[in-house]
Design a protein around this nucleic acid. Structure first.
Lengths: 195, 195
DNA sequence: TTTATAACATACTAATTAGTATGTTATTTT
DNA sequence: AAAATAACATACTAATTAGTATGTTATAAA
């Protein structure tokens, strides 16, 4: 990787952390360059403007991270009930990057930017759609091998589960990690009703 | 109501709409006073600073509105499965103030402010707790009259339902009102498993 | 090795921000 | 009616913002 590419990635990953903690719009370019000890000239050499950096952040940092943690593990799943529960538990309880106080970076960005910036909306939609599809695939597979009832609507369940996840990332911000634990208990009950 | 109280309420309700559409931090005091044709002197006569206005907005506009729409109808419920579904459908489909593009004002504020401002966090927590309690009460009542199974954990279900609502308000921002409809279908299935 | 270009670095600008200072005018209280 | 206070109105300030202008220095192509 060239020096320029390294600088660019450095900006993106530091910006990602700041945006995760403080939101996109309230994270200033000045803050980002201060935390990276990169100058303004370098920043605007790599990105035409702040929004272009924001989109790059979603496509080059957020999307790959979520794909690895939330999509890939489901595509090979043969037992959706078990694997969906374990994925959620992994994300909510055992993931060391996420902080209950700051929620989920994707959910945060949807909340903040989807309504006011079409480019953000589009990039974030791709993340959610690809998760939705993966959940759908895992359920379809389980219907095929009779671990889930065949009258279960895979896409419907996927939307319901994603809603639950996004929502508990929100309520967790005020109620703390106890909300995660209670949510997981009822998620387990709900998933069981699909079998 | 005195002239001063009217001015104050005028500021709060216009600010509420702006904050709902654009977020709290990106809604400037200048925008608020421009949209109300109230001067800066008047604004800072009624509120010590922007954050005090924000808290007043939650306590005096958001809390009463959510209490009327989401809490009161549940306290007298004798059939939680039916009433919870209808409440959700009313909120998501038939409510004319909410816009799928902008989500739910309470969810938005939790997302944006809970982590960075303890006063906002506290005021918003009260809203969610009171909804959670109301959902709990409606379920307990239904357990009492045998319309819901007695092994159902009321508070657990309440957390699960609130998560689903908050989450679909989020995903709705990118997927549109179709997400609401699909979510409601699966919510109906889920609620039925409690009976 | 010259030349071109990528990769920075520094200093600046115009707009916007929350908040203040200092007034005037309307409304109560005495 | 006089005095006090509530309810404004206007002009300002200091800090922060995204972005630009104009350079210099490192890297790579010719």
């Amino acid at each position: 990787m060239s020096k320029g590419q390294l600088t660019r990635l450095n900006i993106l990953s530091k910006a990602f952390e700041l945006v995760y903690r403080n939101g996109y719009q309230t994270t200033s370019v000045d803050e980002i360059i201060a935390s990276t000890s990169v100058t303004k000239g370098a920043f605007y050499h790599h990105f035409k403007n702040k929004d272009e950096m924001g989109i790059a952040l979603i496509k080059e940092v957020l999307f790959p991270a979520m794909n690895k943690a939330m999509v890939k593990p489901l595509l090979s799943s043969k037992d959706a009930v078990k694997d969906l529960y374990e994925l959620m538990e992994g994300l909510l309880i055992h993931n060391s990057f996420f902080n209950v106080k700051y929620g989920c970076p994707a959910v945060n960005l949807i909340e903040e930017m989807a309504a006011i910036n079409p480019n953000f909306n589009k990039a974030l939609t791709e993340i959610i759609i690809s998760w939705q599809k993966a959940i759908g695939v895992s359920i379809e597979n389980s219907i095929s091998n009779n671990t889930i009832k065949d009258d279960v609507k895979a896409d419907q369940v996927a939307t319901f589960i994603i809603s639950g996840y996004s929502g508990v990332r929100n309520t967790g911000k005020i109620l703390g990690s106890n909300a995660y634990k209670i949510y997981l208990k009822e998620l387990r009950n709900y998933l069981k009703t699909l079998t």
